[in-house]
Nucleic acid binder design. Structure first.
Lengths: 151, 151
DNA sequence: GTTTATTGTAACATTTATTGTTACAACAGA
DNA sequence: TCTGTTGTAACAATAAATGTTACAATAAAC
């Protein structure tokens, strides 16, 4: 199965904060218009990003902002913040291999280190990409034009 | 979300075939006893592995066997055989970013290449590990002892 | 030819995660 | 006090993973 869209939505959120922070208050409604999902979905994600120390949110008055420099936030930070992997493991292992079978007994300890090896390769690549990199890429595609909502 | 257990179950299947092929007919029931899942689950997986050209299955008389050398089957081959990723993509992208927003318009083309970059890092690591490697690891944990079923 | 074990597959149930939605109390600033 | 916003509960809808029973098709053994 695919990794959930929370990851790409979270990156979208950061991109909006970075692009519009000087001109607009970044509320869940503002983000919902750009991402085109329900504002409550956004708020839950914002909560996860806040809990991970990546953004700050103002209650009441509203608005999200970056808690770190764009160079200091990696895609791995974002992935870990929004993707709740069971026990931190990317791969789901079948639960009950038969301990009375020589393979059933050994498959788990043997495979675990290999699965970790694969997961680490993915995480290392995620860690090598920062929001700064993403924002540079975006700058090639867009100039700051008129925002979409005038509310 | 985690990657489904079909992946680890498939590796378990290969391990059983390799270990018991000279002594036992590797049926879905035999495998189900070692893996401890329903035989129909096993049969569906065996079908996927057969379609990918990794194993051979005998109808009627029954039994699965390797279609290639253990050096020639990588974890990536197995992953691709049993994990049906939508459009081959590991990451699910939110469907409808707003094209009227500068970020909404650019997020998809910009992120796509980065997501591919991450996926490729994972696939490269999977490709570097063959069944031969796994079977060597297993050999350190187990000697061929009495099989579990006498049926 | 009959019997037997097995595969392939349909049909369905169960569980879990994702995603979407409405509603509203808590909050902070005007 | 009014207003807009966040945080969160409660629930619905969808989709995927996993489990189960049943049975026709198959191939070998007798």
């Amino acid at each position: 199965m695919q990794i959930s869209s929370r990851f790409t939505i979270a990156i979208h959120i950061f991109s909006c904060i970075n692009t519009f922070r000087d001109e607009y208050k970044i509320t869940s409604n503002f983000l919902a218009m750009s991402i085109q999902v329900n504002p409550v979905i956004i708020r839950k994600l914002l909560g996860q990003l806040k809990d991970a120390g990546l953004i700050e949110i103002k209650r009441g008055s509203g608005g999200a902002s970056l808690a770190k420099k764009t160079r200091e936030i990696t895609l791995l930070d974002i992935f870990n913040a929004v993707e709740s992997l069971d026990d931190g493991r990317l791969f789901h292992f079948h639960e009950n291999p038969n301990p009375d079978c020589p393979i059933g007994k050994s498959i788990h300890p043997v495979l675990d280190s290999r699965l970790e090896q694969i997961q680490r390769a993915m995480e290392k690549e995620m860690q090598s990409i920062t929001l700064e990199d993403i924002f540079k890429d975006i700058a090639k595609y867009t100039k700051k034009t008129l925002p979409l909502n005038q509310v």
